[in-house]
């Protein structure tokens, strides 16, 4: 039982890792907590659903469409909302992202209603290994996320774009003097973040039914994961996501499963109280 929960927790954690990474990247480069992560994930689920079920595309093509759609939405939100409010401080941006979140969620609701939907994928038998039940979807989730994480890691550490993103996160005006345009890097960050959230939406849609609140269900856990890792730290976000995933699933041993989300909240609160900088990274106390 415990081993099964631990395994499920790792997979849930991997699923959380992509949006947590997206949240932390936006926080690093653009300096605000993007409340619209959940809604953008929802948009990814629906974009993939349209491609897969209505247009009959295979899941890989549907995933690509989801990534492109959410990246586009991120660019639009950046161009018309976030960039215009950039100088007004991180809370104004956070409130604006709440507005963006409502818009995206309700565009999905307007076109697709509140009904639950699922992808058109063949059901397959779970595998049994050492007494643990492993679903096909869990394998897909794990492989996709690991590949994405490796790709993002390589991008951030070994490419000029990755260096530029980290440089802008450190000190945007110094980066400007070095020839790195903040605006360009901001746009590229949205493309990357949009792609991650789009893929996360596809994986979430494999794991549970797709409805306008699919992303909201993960919202608190995503924030908990990113805070646990120290907002702004990519590796921290991934470790935070795995911890939150395992903690949520394992909590079933001691508290009713209805209260899974409370675990995330308790982790955030405990962490902020006892260690204000997260596992790795930023300061959380104010003057």
């Amino acid at each position: 039982m415990a081993a099964q929960l631990f395994f499920n927790g790792l997979v849930t954690g991997l699923l959380l890792a992509l949006p947590a990474l997206a949240l932390t990247l936006v926080f690093g480069v653009l300096k605000f907590a993007n409340f619209a992560v959940g809604a953008m994930l929802t948009l990814g689920s629906f974009a993939a659903w349209v491609a897969n079920v209505q247009l009959g595309m295979p899941m890989t093509a549907a995933a690509a469409i989801a990534a492109v759609t959410v990246a586009g939405a991120g660019l639009l939100a950046d161009q018309f909302a976030f960039e215009r409010l950039r100088r007004r401080g991180s809370i104004t941006l956070l409130v604006a992202s709440m507005g963006v979140s409502l818009m995206i969620e309700n565009v999905c609701r307007f076109f697709f209603g509140n009904a639950s939907r699922g992808f058109d994928v063949a059901l397959s038998r779970p595998i049994r290994w050492e007494g643990i039940r492993i679903n096909q979807e869990q394998i897909t989730i794990a492989i996709t996320v690991v590949v994405c994480l490796v790709a993002v890691d390589v991008l951030l550490r070994f490419t000029p774009l990755g260096r530029a993103m980290r440089a802008v996160a450190d000190n945007a005006s110094l980066a400007a003097v070095r020839g790195v345009e903040r605006r360009t890097i901001a746009r590229l960050t949205w493309v990357l973040v949009g792609a991650l959230l789009g893929l996360a939406g596809v994986l979430a849609g494999l794991d549970r039914s797709i409805d306008p609140l699919i992303g909201w269900n993960y919202q608190i856990a995503i924030f908990a994961a990113a805070i646990l890792g120290g907002l702004g730290s990519p590796i921290g976000a991934v470790l935070g996501a795995l911890t939150i995933g395992v903690a949520e699933e394992m909590s079933a041993l001691v508290i009713p499963t209805n209260y899974r989300q409370v675990v995330s909240f308790a982790v955030i609160l405990a962490l902020l109280l006892f260690r204000a900088n997260g596992l790795l990274g930023a300061k959380a106390a104010r003057k």
Binding site: P160, R163, A164, R166, A167, A169, D170, N171, L174, A175, R178, G179, V180, E181
Partner: peptide, 18 residues
């Protein structure tokens, strides 16, 4: 300097976008 970048990365970044 960019504190989260290594010395080598700081030096690379100094020219690669010029």
């Amino acid at each position: 300097v960019f504190p989260s970048l290594t010395i080598g990365e700081n030096l690379k970044l100094a020219t690669e976008f010029l």
